[in-house]
């Protein structure tokens, strides 16, 4: 799956000559179908979240977000993302560098392994850490003797989140760096640049958009992960509940409005990062 998730809204694209585009009505019908589909599948659920969230008024909305349990969940979610995202970013850059700039055997297997967390059921991703670090798990007794708590605590939540978000940055960078080739780096190297210099001054400027986008997606997914974290969290109120788990708890307590209010918080976090990204992207492209 080279070239996933890359977006460059090419401005020229819309100015295609008449003979290689569709006639006006066809164009609008296609746009209408696409929007209708998106509306039904993506927009409507989002809308319903906001409608439910504000059903009982703005007061309830603000209260449910200011609730200490919600705040501690928010804090845990941000802490988790703050650890998981940089880790996966460093990994993503290293993996993309190795894969795109060098030739070696088994590259396909390596790429497949990086992809694997995309396809593993979240239930399994959580379960594997229980199998490893749980009290009955392979390493459990050893850890227990030393008083180290991994699952049902922050480390377990971070591990499960890292697992789920491993592919995002790497998968975003690999096609970019492959397309970019090695000429520039080789030129820099022949001019006597050292390894890190080459990376900072030549490679990074070229991949920064892909990198930024990968980080944004990785972050969004890290904050929103539910299934895997649910298995390793232990659901202790105010302690090991992340935002998505807090949403579930509120829902199970029949506090539907509060639950959707917290959910809308997550949606807004995601929307804001995505909008910021397109603004930054647009600004930079208009500079050229």
């Amino acid at each position: 799956m080279a070239g996933t998730i890359t977006v460059h809204l090419n401005k020229e694209a819309s100015k295609r000559p008449e003979h290689v585009t569709e006639s006006g009505p066809v164009r609008w019908i296609l746009i209408a179908i696409a929007l209708l589909f998106l509306g039904l599948i993506v927009v409507l659920p989002l809308l319903s979240i906001f409608v439910e969230a504000f059903k009982k008024g703005v007061g309830v909305y603000i209260d449910s977000i200011k609730d200490p349990d919600a705040m501690s969940a928010l804090k845990l979610t941000l802490t988790t993302a703050l650890i998981a995202v940089p880790l996966n970013t460093v990994f993503g850059i290293a993996a993309a560098w190795a894969i795109s700039k060098f030739r070696f055997r088994g590259k396909n297997i390596l790429i497949t392994l990086i992809d694997l967390p995309f396809a593993v059921s979240p239930v399994i991703s959580g379960m594997v850490y229980v199998l490893l670090f749980g009290a009955q798990g392979f390493l459990g007794p050893w850890l227990d003797d030393r008083g180290i708590q991994i699952i049902f605590a922050l480390p377990g939540i971070v591990l499960a989140t890292v697992f789920v978000t491993v592919p995002f940055v790497a998968r975003e960078l690999i096609p970019h760096m492959q397309a970019q080739g090695v000429q520039e780096e080789e030129a820099a190297s022949s001019l006597g640049a050292k390894g890190w210099q080459i990376f900072w001054r030549v490679t990074l400027p070229n991949i920064k958009w892909g990198l930024l986008y990968g980080i944004i997606l990785c972050n969004a997914r890290a904050m929103g992960e539910f299934g895997a974290v649910s298995v390793v969290s232990g659901h202790i109120r105010g302690e090991t509940n992340t935002l998505p788990l807090h949403i579930e708890i509120l829902y199970n307590e029949y506090q539907f409005s509060a639950s959707f209010a917290v959910a809308s918080l997550l949606v807004m976090l995601a929307v804001v990062t995505l909008i910021v990204k397109s603004i930054v992207e647009w600004k930079s492209s208009s500079q050229h």
Binding site: Q136, G140, Q149, F152
Partner: peptide
């Protein structure tokens, strides 16, 4: 199950 797996 969580308690068995080490939830304190």
């Amino acid at each position: 199950r969580a308690v068995i797996d080490g939830l304190k």
